[in-house]
């Protein structure tokens, strides 16, 4: 099933890219996924795609901001952050 596949992928992946937007914050699935990672002390890289009110639990994480810089600049910041995690 879809939810079993997602659950398996959540456990298999070592870290998460969380795409934040007003729709992302309204999604129950997205909410469950990032809370699952935080509860299991797994790494999250939040990516601010569209302006929204960031949940309190995510405040201490460093964001890659796609709203205030070009796509290419933000992408290169994201790639650097992900390469550090991969090592």
């Amino acid at each position: 099933s879809w939810s079993r596949q997602v659950g398996r992928a959540l456990d298999m992946c070592s870290a998460m890219i969380l795409v934040l937007s007003p729709d992302g914050l309204e999604s129950e699935n997205v909410d469950d996924e990032w809370n699952y990672y935080l509860d299991n002390k797994k790494m999250i890289v939040p990516l601010l795609y569209r302006e929204c009110r960031v949940p309190f639990r995510l405040h201490k994480l460093q964001f890659i901001d796609f709203t205030r810089q070009s796509y290419d600049t933000a992408l290169s910041h994201l790639v650097s952050a992900l390469h550090v995690i991969q090592q």
Partner: peptide, 30 residues
Amino acid sequence: FFVSYARKDQPFVEQLAIDLKRRSIDVWLD
């Protein structure tokens, strides 16, 4: 990397996944 996102953001996320794969970063999208 697991990518968590809302359906409405899918076009952005799909482009992002292509760009990350080009840089040898594997992502999982549902």
